[in-house]
Amino acid sequence: MSFNASDDDSQQRFALGFLFALITLIIATVLGVVVFKRGIQRAPVAAPAAVAVAEPAPVAAAAPGVVVTEEAAVVVEGGVVKFYFASGKVDLAPGAAEALQDVARGVNEGGRSAAISGYHDATGDAALNAELAKQRAVAVREALLALGVAEDKVELKKPEVTQADGNNAQARRVEVLLLP
Rank of each mutant, 00 (worst) to 15 (best):
L156C: 06
V68F: 03
E131N: 09
A5V: 11
E175R: 13
T69C: 06
G95T: 12
V80W: 00
I23L: 15
P94N: 13
R42A: 09
G111T: 00
A99P: 03
I116Q: 00
A115Q: 10
N108V: 13
S117T: 00
E70N: 11
A52D: 01
A63R: 15
S10W: 10
Y84I: 08
L19I: 11
E70I: 04
L25M: 11
E55I: 09
V33P: 04
V68T: 14
S6L: 07
F85W: 01
K134V: 12
V59N: 10
R136C: 06
P56K: 12
R38C: 10
L145E: 08
R141C: 00
R112Q: 07
S6I: 12
A146L: 06
R112S: 03
A54N: 14
G78C: 00
N168Q: 14
P94L: 11
V154D: 02
D165R: 11
R38M: 13
K89N: 06
L179Y: 09
D9H: 11
P159L: 09
V33K: 00
K158S: 12
E131V: 09
S113Q: 05
K134D: 14
R172M: 04
A47V: 07
F3N: 08
V30S: 08
N4L: 14
Q101T: 09
E71K: 11
T29F: 03
T29Q: 00
V68E: 15
A61M: 15
R112N: 00
D9S: 13
G95A: 08
V67W: 04
L145C: 07
A164K: 05
L179R: 13
R105A: 13
R38V: 09
L92E: 06
D7S: 01
A57D: 12
K82L: 07
F3P: 07
V176I: 10
S117C: 00
S113Y: 02
Q11V: 04
Q11T: 02
V51K: 14
A126F: 06
A15K: 14
L25R: 05
Q12F: 13
L92N: 10
E160H: 02
G118I: 02
T162C: 09
Q41R: 15
A15R: 14
R172P: 04
L132S: 03
G78A: 01
F3Y: 15
L16N: 09
L156D: 05
L145H: 02
G32Y: 04
G124W: 02
A43F: 07
L177F: 07
P44G: 15
L178R: 04
D125E: 11
E155G: 00
G118F: 00
A60F: 15
R136E: 01
T123K: 03
A143T: 05
V149K: 02
D7N: 12
A60R: 15
K153G: 02
A130Q: 02
A164Q: 07
L156R: 08
